[in-house]
């Protein structure tokens, strides 16, 4: 047994919806403190891959290992395992009937079994971390998209996860709100959180991530450091995609 298993290990993940195979054997690993960015054209299974990791969409084939535990094993307590993986959604998915504080607190009291007081102070702490302690009593519908997403991040962080999964966290946001969310994510990465991020924000990829994984048609086409990726991509397809992305988002040179 190796001394330090990777936080996340994917082995040959396959997933089909009906006759359409969305993921065709994806493998990679994520070590403690690493941030990896998943990019690729829409419909290539990036979101499906994230959901395969925390088993919201169980893969058809292949193995997912979290910190030495196989999640694809049917005997594993998946609710327990999911507490160690925070997930941030494209459309925030905040609990619509709860204010920001209670969105963050719910998991603490109902899943972790903390008492009210403990949970409340922890929730406030997490809201502070994303710069929203003054909005604790605002409901999701009263918050801007950027604020909602930061509450979403706080909600995930409150569970003290070992790994954070981000599913296009900024793509539903107005351009002027993207920055505040990216800032929180950059802080997190720099603080040593292990993160897997699906995003088209090349500026983020370039400045904080350790590796970029380019996924197309359910397969990894190329993976490597941002430097290698942006300066000398091995595959023509990667270059074409990067050109298109920087044209759209203009973020590659930052």
């Amino acid at each position: 047994m190796l001394s330090n298993p990777p936080i996340l290990l994917l082995k040959n993940i396959h997933k089909s919806y009906g006759t359409e195979e969305v993921l065709k054997g994806v493998s990679f690993e994520l070590n403690k403190g690493e941030t990896k960015v998943l990019i690729g054209p829409s419909g290539t299974g990036k979101s499906t891959l994230l959901r395969c990791i925390n088993q919201l969409t169980p893969p058809d084939q292949g193995e997912v290992w979290l910190n030495g535990t196989e999640l694809t094993d049917s005997k594993v307590d998946i609710n327990k395992a999911r507490q160690q993986m925070g997930m941030v959604f494209q459309h925030f998915n905040l609990f619509a009937h709860l204010d920001a504080l209670n969105n963050v607190k719910l998991g603490l009291t109902k899943v972790k079994g903390m008492n009210e007081e403990e949970a409340k102070s922890k929730a406030i702490e997490e809201l502070e971390r994303v710069g929203l302690s003054t909005q604790a009593s605002s409901y999701p519908a009263q918050l801007s998209g950027g604020q909602q997403q930061r509450v979403g991040i706080a909600r995930a962080l409150a569970m003290d996860p070992k790994l954070m999964l981000f599913d296009e966290p900024t793509s539903a946001l107005d351009p002027e709100l993207i920055g505040e969310v990216l800032e929180v994510m950059i802080d997190l990465a720099e603080a040593g959180m292990t993160m897997l991020v699906v995003t088209h924000e090349m500026g983020f990829a370039r400045s904080v991530c350790d590796e970029i994984i380019f996924l197309e048609n359910g397969k990894i086409v190329e993976q490597g450091s941002p430097r290698q990726f942006f300066e000398s991509p091995e595959h023509k397809r990667t270059q074409g995609f990067l050109d298109k992305i920087s044209e759209l988002y203009g973020g590659a040179e930052r």
């Binding site: 919201l56 609710n79 993986m85 925070g86 959604f89 719910l106 899943v111 995930a156």
Partner: peptide, 18 residues
Amino acid sequence: VGKEQMMASRSIGMSQFK
């Protein structure tokens, strides 16, 4: 209410019943 709310609560480790 939609699947998203269920997904979000499952993602923080809540059981389906909770």
